[in-house]
């Protein structure tokens, strides 16, 4: 699987570390325990398109949000996690 790092270009998956679901969002510190449980443990795990976090540890050390199809492994988009997090912060 080759993931096109927005900074480094396309690289094999062996350069990356996978974390998982990028659609869950860390609750505020005082959120109820159900919210924390859902954040840490529950996953949609769809058999289709999914957004997920990958770390380009052997490259530029950027966290990336990768949209990928779980059935075909086709990669639909890649974006820097930091940019998305900042945009999310602005939207919130």
């Amino acid at each position: 699987m080759r993931i096109a790092c927005p900074f480094c270009g396309p690289r094999g998956s062996e350069e990356y570390t996978y974390l998982g679901d990028a659609t869950v969002r860390r609750p505020e510190g005082d959120a109820p325990s159900e919210a924390w449980f859902a954040y840490v443990y529950l996953r949609d795990n769809p058999a289709g398109r999914h957004r997920e976090l990958w770390y380009h540890g052997a490259g530029c050390r950027s966290w990336l949000v990768v949209e990928r199809d779980m059935r075909s492994h086709d990669i639909l988009s890649v974006a820097p996690a930091r940019d998305m997090a900042l945009a999310r912060g602005r939207a919130a």
Binding site: A38, L42, R43, N45, P46, A47
Partner: peptide, 18 residues
């Protein structure tokens, strides 16, 4: 392998990834 997919048919989210 497909537990999440099938459980979702009953509205459940599971602590599982495939």
């Amino acid at each position: 392998g497909n537990s999440s997919r099938v459980a979702a048919m009953a509205g459940l989210r599971l602590p599982i990834e495939s």
